[in-house]
């Protein structure tokens, strides 16, 4: 285990030490202390590291992650795990807007609440939120799964493509082309797997499923000639 205090080491230097593990893995366990809301912590990792951040982090924490498991013992600012490719990011507290934006893979767990635009343009990531999400979550979600144990704000899944959404609580409103869908056995099974992977105690049977009605312009075969 190696510890980096950000009251003594710059973010750039801390990230460099983590990136140095990409070519050759010398130390897998890392602890980052005194984050004090600094931005871009543990970004661009590309190695099977275990990174623990002790405190609140700023914007774009663990962005572009590949392979690493990053845990934040606090809350995070805008864009946690944005464009994650693989690995796992776990936020013990709340997350600000655009959590998991455009992420292609991996698992993002937010134990508290996430604000607006959680999973915006998600492209294959799995996001499990212990609390609630704000408005326009999964906006233009293309692939992946979003699980919300609490409530969802306005315009959930607006202009959604093929991302699958599971919400246990209320949905303030559904966005354009987002509809409630039947919860079949295969959905219950994948939801159980996601809740297990996130370590959250919830019954899959209590959730409802939402997804695309496939009625927007780009889904219409009549428009195929346009391409």
């Amino acid at each position: 285990m190696r510890t980096i205090s950000l009251s003594e080491t710059s973010v750039r230097e801390a990230n460099r030490q983590l990136h140095d593990q990409t070519a050759e893995l010398a130390e897998a366990q890392w602890r980052i202390t005194d984050p004090e809301g600094r931005h871009a912590l543990a970004c661009g990792l590309d190695q099977t590291l275990e990174v623990e951040i002790d405190g609140h982090a700023g914007y774009y924490c663990a962005g572009m992650n590949q392979k690493a498991r990053v845990t934040i013992n606090g809350m995070v600012g805008v864009g946690v795990a944005e464009n994650m490719m693989s690995g796992q990011v776990r936020v013990k507290g709340n997350a600000s807007q655009s959590a998991g934006a455009t992420a292609h893979g991996g698992l993002l767990v937010i134990e508290g609440d996430a604000s607006a635009r959680c999973g915006i343009s998600m492209k294959g990531v799995d996001i499990v939120v212990g609390g609630s999400v704000g408005h326009l979550s999964a906006f233009m979600g293309q692939a992946g799964r979003l699980v919300v144990c609490g409530d969802a704000g306005e315009a959930l899944g607006d202009s959604i493509y093929e991302a699958r959404l599971y919400v246990r609580g209320s949905v303030k409103s559904l966005g354009a082309d987002c509809v409630e869908k039947e919860m079949r056995d295969e959905h219950l099974a994948e939801l159980r797997d996601l809740l297990d992977a996130a370590g959250l105690d919830a019954r899959a049977e209590d959730f409802r499923r939402y997804g695309s009605a496939r009625e927007l312009y780009n889904f219409k075969v009549d428009n195929a000639d346009e391409y």
Binding site: E36, H39, Y59
Partner: peptide, 22 residues
Amino acid sequence: SEYRALAKLPGIAHARVWEPEP
């Protein structure tokens, strides 16, 4: 605007910290 402005306040580690709803 950002949490880092609050990071030095006394007792912030045990404060309730949240994003105000729109």
